[in-house]
């Protein structure tokens, strides 16, 4: 046990975190109609950080990361991503979306395009990369997620775990500086979760800045350098994984952890 913990610390040390702040969220608020989903969120993410966001369902964690690439619009406060402020300027939004990759719970692959076409679509149309280069990049990342042989199949022909790995490769093909994961494993069968988590871990080892909404606490212990617990639209507690799991401070966190770990 101790050995493992040491290993993890060593792993974490390998993944250097720089001082450069890539995401700044300042007193951000959001409402759905009358419902206050996100309340006074303040969060700074440095380059290379791996953040895991957890919390009970309906606590606003997905909404938080969807605000970062403006899939949801916040109504008050500032979000600054990679030096660009998210405001009503559509050019900024396009710029940020090109820099921020996102992986969805339900994969959202485009069923009418092959795996390769799924991966080259955005580089070609958003980054204006020549098709050949885009395909090379795509194959590179498909190899990395270990499914280069599926490149000419259609998403429907792949298993859930494979689809999710394609979705990760698709996001990586834009060479994003930040990756957002919105419960990437919760729609998967148990035996497929590992292959996706492995992919994410190797990504983390390469120093990718990641924000990950997930309930995979093993993953959080292994790769995260910060765990954020949200409840009722607020950040209730954030800490490094070790103290977070071993010595939670808030009662809500304790309750939550006992519910998901206590069996």
């Amino acid at each position: 046990m101790n050995e493992v913990a040491q290993d993890m610390t060593a792993d974490r040390a390998k993944m250097a975190v720089s001082d450069e702040e890539v995401i700044q969220i300042r007193s951000m608020n959001k409402w759905y109609g009358d419902f206050h989903v996100l309340r006074d969120i303040n969060l700074t993410v440095n380059r290379g950080e791996r953040i895991v966001v957890c919390g009970p369902s309906g606590s606003g964690k997905s909404t938080l990361i969807r605000c970062i690439n403006r899939l949801e619009e916040h109504q008050a406060g500032d979000i600054i991503v990679d030096g660009t402020e998210l405001n009503s300027d559509l050019k900024n939004i396009d710029k940020i979306r090109a820099e921020v990759g996102m992986v969805f719970q339900h994969f959202n692959l485009f069923p009418h395009l092959t795996i390769l076409e799924n991966c080259t679509l955005a580089p070609i149309w958003v980054r204006k990369t020549p098709k050949k280069d885009a395909e090379e990049t795509a194959m590179h990342f498909l190899t990395k997620v270990k499914i280069p042989e599926q490149a000419n199949k259609y998403p429907g022909q792949l298993s859930g775990g494979q689809q999710q790995r394609v979705a990760i490769a698709r996001a990586l093909c834009m060479r994003p500086r930040i990756m957002l994961f919105d419960e990437p494993t919760s729609a998967l069968d148990p035996e497929m979760i590992k292959e996706v988590l492995d992919t994410m871990i190797s990504l983390a080892e390469e120093g990718m800045t990641m924000i990950c909404v997930t309930h995979e606490m093993g993953f959080a212990r292994q790769v995260a350098n910060r765990v954020i617990f949200m409840d009722q639209g607020q950040i209730v507690e954030q800490n490094e994984p070790e103290p977070f799991f071993n010595d939670p401070q808030s009662d809500r966190t304790k309750l939550f952890l006992s519910q998901i770990l206590g069996h």
Binding site: L71, D94, R97, M174
Partner: peptide, 18 residues
């Protein structure tokens, strides 16, 4: 079409017509 298709396209930075 499932709404995820619109979201994925948005998240990639494709504009409306694309």
């Amino acid at each position: 079409l499932p709404p995820g298709q619109y979201e994925a396209a948005d998240a990639m930075g494709l504009n409306y017509w694309q």
